[in-house]
């Protein structure tokens, strides 16, 4: 029993260890007090238990919407259990991801991880993040919002090539709205700059909605975001997506060519996957991971996904791990070239 509560501590988790110890101590005492506790992986999840899903974003945010959807579906898959979403916003995703790394390792707490957002936090030394990839057991990816770049419908730029050419002609004069400095959207712009040997001026906004407002008002040339940010605006004819940064076209933006097909091999997007804190019994993690796959592939939810504008892209634990490693490499390489 104590084996499970002694996590294989990931490197760089020293500060969390006091809380971890306390949690472990509490769990041990709790288990000792509560007579025989058959918390083996066979009887997992026990009926009547409550799961906690930590979300590093506030209620109503994109990550939150994904997590709540999965929580409701999981409750159906495991009758008798409940799945409680706990929002831990703060410092981008850092507070929430840290909370997940420090969470109890009893198999009843897991969380949503947004990549590559969490990776940029891990790789930024100034943020002093106390977690890394080894702090988590990824169980699978759920949804994926492909990166995209959009301009006003009346913009002279008809393709990504047009915009890049304009940037080449007048270095740093073309402005692109992005969310935060070194956030995913900003890194996409940096990837374009590095790939095409041009320079843009990024204009930072606190959220993608305000960046869109700046774009629609004609103050900036383009906004780098995700397909999901632009769908409503495209439908209303105010905005044109120049490129989708994915291997294939997006179902939500039919007819928009990929960046790759326009000669820019950039693949980027915001993924929403789930992970347990490292130290959890791998069998438990696998069990929830399987169920996640079942939900993601279930025809039952298909129309609901479309209604919510979610692009489901399930990856099992192994695929998720590969994707995660790939993103770490991609982001590290981008960051190494700007400093």
């Amino acid at each position: 029993m104590t084996k499970r509560t002694q996590p294989d501590r990931a490197p760089g988790m020293q500060i969390g260890s006091r809380r971890t110890f306390l949690a472990a101590a509490l769990t041990v005492t709790g288990l000792a007090l509560l007579a025989p506790s058959p918390a083996s992986a066979q009887a997992y999840p026990e009926p009547g238990k409550r799961f906690t899903i930590i979300v590093a974003g506030s209620a109503g945010s994109g990550t939150d919407i994904n997590a709540r959807f999965v929580a409701a579906a999981m409750e159906k898959e495991f009758p008798g259990t409940s799945f409680q979403v706990v929002n831990r916003p703060g410092a981008g995703v850092q507070v929430g991801v840290q909370a997940l790394a420090d969470a109890p390792k009893d198999g009843y707490t897991f969380g949503l991880i947004s990549l590559p957002t969490a990776i940029t936090v891990m790789l930024d030394p100034s943020r002093k993040a106390n977690f890394n990839k080894e702090s988590f057991i990824g169980i699978g990816n759920f949804s994926y919002d492909a990166g995209a770049i959009a301009v006003r419908a009346d913009s002279p730029y008809k393709s990504l090539g047009d915009l890049i050419a304009a940037a080449k002609e007048k270095p740093a004069e073309r402005t692109v709205g992005v969310v935060g400095p070194r956030g995913r959207e900003h890194l996409d712009v940096i990837a374009m700059e590095q790939g095409a040997g041009v320079s843009f001026t990024p204009v930072f906004h606190n959220d993608s909605g305000l960046a869109l407002n700046t774009l629609l008002g004609g103050n900036i040339d383009a906004v780098q975001g995700s397909v999901g940010d632009f769908v409503a605006q495209v439908k209303s004819g105010r905005v044109r997506i120049l490129a989708v940064f994915d291997k294939q076209e997006s179902a939500y933006a039919p007819g928009v060519p990929t960046a790759e097909s326009q000669g820019f091999k950039i693949y980027s997007g915001t993924s929403r996957g789930f992970a347990f804190p490292a130290g959890v019994d791998p069998k438990m993690a696998a069990r929830i991971g399987e169920t996640l796959g079942k939900i993601a592939n279930s025809p039952e939810y298909k129309s609901k996904f479309a209604e919510m504008g979610l692009e489901i892209r399930y990856m099992d634990a192994a695929q998720y791990n590969t994707y995660w490693n790939g993103e770490v490499a991609r982001i590290s390489s981008l960051l190494s070239k700007i400093n």
Binding site: G90, A91, G92, R127
Partner: peptide, 8 residues
């Protein structure tokens, strides 16, 4: 001041 919570 070294607090992650203050980064936001």
């Amino acid at each position: 001041l070294g607090f992650t919570n203050l980064l936001g």
